[in-house]
Computed example of a mutant assay.
Amino acid sequence: MIPTNCQNWLALGACVYADMSVSKALRMLGLVNFTKGVKQNHRKPIDVDKAIELRELGCTYQKIGEIMNVSFTTIRERLIEVGYNEVKK
Rank of each mutant, 00 (worst) to 15 (best):
R43V: 06
V32K: 15
G30T: 05
M20V: 04
K44R: 05
T35V: 08
L29R: 10
V48N: 05
C6H: 13
P45I: 02
F34G: 08
F34T: 14
R43C: 08
I46N: 01
Y17M: 14
V48E: 04
L10M: 15
A11M: 07
L31A: 07
G30P: 05
I46Y: 00
M20E: 02
A25E: 01
G37V: 02
A14K: 09
D47H: 05
E53T: 03
A18I: 02
Q40L: 11
Q40F: 01
D49W: 00
V38A: 09
N8H: 13
Y17H: 12
R43H: 11
A18S: 12
A14Y: 10
V38W: 01
T35M: 09
L26Q: 07
K50E: 14
K36F: 02
C6A: 15
Q40Y: 01
L29I: 10
D19F: 03
C15L: 04
A51Q: 00
G37N: 03
C6I: 15
M20W: 05
V22D: 06
V22N: 08
E53Q: 11
K50M: 11
M28A: 08
A18N: 11
L26S: 03
C15M: 14
W9H: 12
H42Y: 03
E53F: 05
Q40R: 14
L10T: 08
A14R: 09
F34M: 14
A51D: 05
N8R: 11
D47I: 00
A25P: 03
T35S: 14
Y17E: 14
F34D: 15
D49V: 01
V38Y: 05
Q7E: 13
R27V: 02
V16H: 12
A18R: 09
V38I: 14
C6Q: 15
N41R: 09
E53G: 10
